[in-house]
Design a protein around this nucleic acid. Structure first.
Lengths: 232, 232
DNA sequence: AATAATTTGCGTAATTTTTACACATTTATT
DNA sequence: AATAAATGTGTAAAAATTACGCAAATTATT
């Protein structure tokens, strides 16, 4: 018995539309990206960003979140569109337009992911050659990330809830590829008034037991509403 | 004799993909946008951004440039993608994904446009209700424009080749919606070293005959290559 | 136990940048 | 000739950035 397959017919040719998700993490030293190994052709065995085709009843944002969840088990609260890729030959199967997103997540939350069979974190320096035009997508994502962090405190999504000032500094240095003077960084960050110092101290610290902080999201949105700019 | 119409058949439903162009101009006082009056349904008679459907042999960038030229006669050297719009019901005909672009042009170059039958400049304050979700697209474009001008000297595309410092200041004030001290603005701009003062003076000036400037594109790219940032 | 090394918190002087104005000049208008 | 508008130059105060000094807490080493 043969299955009846419905066909979709248009008067003009239509491209397929997909989303791809560049997920950034931070291991305390360097920026990481989450990749999945492709299980089907084309580019079977190659690493690529999680993503997939847009359904007719969802927006691109919803598609990106759904595909990310399906392919890596990861649920992110905020995912941000940064560019669409539309070169004619970018997918060998058919014309595919990809709307690319990036998100920043706490790396620990993904490690235990259940559906994350073939998902794996890569150090940003050690990313292998990627499927399709995903190398290009990654380069663009990194540029957008650098621009974005000048205006929004997205970095806090990459750190654990509670963190040391030195960890925050290393994160900014990893993203912006610069070095800051430790003492000036501390001053500048504290002056922004978006960090809450935490009482509890870790007894097993590697050296002097430092003050821990938590990001003050409420205060940040309050300041932002008043027309405050981060400008890091 | 009936015309044979070719159909395009897919196993899965495909959205249509289009581009829309938000074209900014500057009249010396306020920001302007170029709109066209729709001649067909849906939204016939409504104002909308120039744009149209993607062909299978062109990238989205090429599509945006082509549609802009076809609908307004305008040829722009640089057009920049800023966001894609994909809400499910944004087009009543069928599912349409729109990749939106913006460009900045010298208003004088469009006035004499030949194909610009129904194209018209609108003061940014007096934009009527637009077709589809183009109101949303315009709001997003304005936000992106403000962000962009902090990093790139796009403003010069809006001015004539030769301009006065006060004109440049009015432009920045119009885009960023702030006021600058005239003397500090002069100093800051001159310190950037991307302006060439011009000798020739206009004998019919309304007041004291000011120094005219020209944007030093070569110098700017030179500085940019060395890692210089505009940061206005 | 003593010493060295690391990381951290706080502070300060020098430098640079930004801000707020003063004032004189050129041209058009009255 | 006087007035008004727009412009070019300058300068002092305020604010922000930069470059460090130094001591304390803790771990590692001897």
């Amino acid at each position: 018995m043969e299955e009846i397959k419905q066909k979709y017919i248009y008067d003009y040719p239509h491209p397929a539309v997909a989303t791809d998700c560049v997920i950034f993490g931070f291991d305390g030293e360097q920026l990481q990206v989450l990749l999945i190994e492709r299980g089907i052709e084309p580019f079977m065995g190659c690493w690529a960003f999680p993503g997939g085709f847009l359904r007719m009843d969802e927006s691109a944002d919803e598609c990106a979140q759904r595909e990310l969840r399906e392919e890596t088990g990861l649920k992110v609260e905020h995912i941000e569109q940064f560019h669409s890729f539309s070169a004619v030959g970018r997918d060998p199967r058919e014309r595919v337009i990809s709307i690319a997103y990036f998100a920043l997540v706490k790396i620990a939350e993904v490690k235990g992911g259940d559906d994350a069979r073939r998902a794996q974190w890569f150090n940003i320096e050690d990313v292998p050659q990627l499927a399709f035009d995903h190398d290009l997508i990654l380069r663009k994502a990194l540029v957008c990330l650098k621009e974005k962090i000048h205006f929004e405190p997205i970095g806090f999504d990459l750190l654990p809830e509670i963190f040391k000032m030195s960890e925050l500094q290393k994160l900014y240095e990893a993203i912006l590829e610069v070095k800051f003077d430790r003492r000036n960084f501390y001053k500048k960050m504290n002056a922004l008034e978006i960090l809450i110092p935490i009482e509890e101290r870790n007894p097993n610290a590697a050296s002097r037991n430092p003050i821990k902080y938590r990001f003050n999201k409420v205060k940040y949105y309050e300041l932002k509403r008043k027309g405050f700019r981060l400008e890091f």
